[in-house]
Design a binder for these strands. Structure first.
Length: 425
RNA sequence: GGAGAGGUGGCUGAGUGGUUGAAAGCGGCUCCCUGCUAAGGAGUUACAGGAGGUAACUUCUGUCGAGGGUUCGAAUCCCUCCCUCUCCGCCA
């Protein structure tokens, strides 16, 4: 959420930020509403002040022994009633105005960081670095073919259980998923992250706090009987973990790593990535999350990205790092580095992690602050996958595939999996 | 799901209609005294928003789980909801 005060005092900064995202919003009407709201608040609080004084006066007079039914007191009381009625009128207007403003502002995305390159869409993203040697050739199979051969998972019967875009893992496939989750968690814990296993269902406030609501309600599954949604990413419960808190500055940064199943409706992606593990309604993810001192968040962003990259390196998976341009930036992010893993079967890089700094955007929505000696200020939040587990499995299958149909596993995974390769059983 | 109890400041915990934003204690901070592993004394210590001032600061409003209501006046009375705890039932 953007700062009301900033909209009031520096609307240019905001509209320029929106322009860089390719959005054009006229802030004038909002500014007018903010101004009116301010004026109403002022008159209202003056009236209340008057009312409070009358209340006290009545109390004192009664105490001093004046007849409670005297004309003097009656007059005071009726003045009190009148004030109360006028206050009620003002409050009504105030409430509808501030609700209107709030919904508008909750629908505004974050302002891109000045470091974020301006661009129209994903074609303007900037490659920053590469790691590893991508396998090239025409003989590489896509991961679902490999998996099918090894009986790792099945999609068709999963739609019997649930619907399309769900997958059921079997045998070595299930075990590999488990091994990957454990490896990722262990490595991050080793680096000082605190492990969290959050609820998979989250309420409306949590989704609003991290930016998924109100704008993207069609992206998440909702439980109709309750104020609960299936969490689309652990970013949501992790942000909500410290909602309405003031975190002492010497405790920062708080670094969390969370494994969670993630649920997404994938509305509007019919026909895309219908095969395999790339785009599912339910997938597993290990998420990295920082609550950072706002003065140190830029450095934190780089570190978080490196921590996510470390998993790819340990798993010997070639990848590249992209800096997203303003046109491809997510709603809550002010700057994002995407990690894309190499998939030789389809001969391209695929997103496997998105490492974003959100500045105070989520912190303002969720009211998460820090306190140093004198001042209280909003903290900065950062998140990134470390990594998306299903896509990691796809990458391991495609990069480790052998001509005989087996898959050689990265060395680091062997202790977790208990074998050096996946074989036909 | 049924019955009961309760939700107050960083924490513990008073407060059942009138200068109570809230006693007391703990903790935190500042200063003083003393000087050796400690103790004592004084002061200070919630959050949000508005107005005024370069600023230190002053001032107004709101906030005692949330939202309504009664009243000139509510932490205190009434209603609804949420949450926590205890007992019973059910359940992985």
């Amino acid at each position: 959420m953007l700062d009301l005060r900033l909209i009031r005092e520096n609307p240019k900064l905001i509209s320029e930020g929106f322009n860089r995202r390719g959005m054009h919003v006229d802030l004038k009407p909002i500014q007018i509403d903010i101004e009116e709201l301010k004026n109403i608040e002022e008159t209202r609080s003056n009236l209340q002040s008057k009312g409070n004084k009358i209340g006290k006066e009545v109390g004192l007079k009664i105490k001093s022994g004046i007849n409670p039914n005297s004309e003097e007191l009656k007059a005071l009381k009726s003045e009190g009633i009148q004030i109360k009625q006028r206050v009620a009128q003002l409050e009504e207007r105030e409430k509808s105005l501030s609700e209107k403003l709030k919904t508008q502002i909750l629908n505004f995305p974050n302002i891109p960081s000045e470091n974020c390159p301006t661009g129209k869409d994903e074609t303007n993203n900037k490659e920053i670095r590469r790691w590893g040697n991508p396998l090239q050739g025409n003989d590489f199979k896509e991961h679902w073919e490999i998996a099918n051969n090894l009986d790792l998972f099945e999609s068709e019967r999963s739609s019997r259980i649930a619907k399309s875009r769900f997958v059921t893992l079997f045998g070595q496939g299930a075990k590999l998923e488990r091994a990957l989750i454990n490896l990722m968690l262990d490595i991050h814990i080793e680096k000082g992250y605190k492990e969290v296993l959050p609820p998979a269902l989250v309420n409306t406030s949590s989704l609003t706090g991290s930016g998924q609501l109100p704008k993207f309600s069609e992206e998440s599954f909702k439980c109709n009987e309750d104020d609960l949604w299936l969490s689309p990413t652990a970013e949501v419960p992790l942000t909500a973990l410290h909602r309405n808190e003031i975190i002492p500055i010497d405790l920062l940064p708080l670094k969390y790593v969370a494994y969670s199943p993630c649920f997404r409706r994938e509305a509007g992606s019919y026909g895309r990535d219908t095969k395999g593990l790339i785009r599912l309604h339910q997938f597993n993810k290990v998420e990295l999350y920082w609550f950072s001192d706002p003065d140190k968040s830029s450095e934190a962003h780089k570190q978080l990205t490196l921590d996510a990259e470390a998993i790819l390196q340990i798993l010997e998976l070639p990848y590249r790092v992209l800096e997203l341009c303003t046109g491809d930036l997510g709603f809550s992010a002010s700057r994002t580095f995407d990690l894309e893993v190499w998939l030789p079967g389809s001969n391209k890089f695929r997103e496997i992690s998105s490492c974003s700094i959100c500045g105070d955007f989520q912190a303002r929505r969720s009211s998460i602050r820090t306190k140093s000696a004198k001042t209280t200020k909003l903290i900065h939040t950062l998140n990134g996958s470390g990594l998306a587990v299903g896509r990691t499995m796809a990458a391991i299958l495609e990069n480790g595939q052998q001509p005989n149909g087996n898959v050689t596993l990265p060395k680091a995974l062997v202790p977790y999996f208990g074998n050096t390769e996946l074989t036909r059983t």
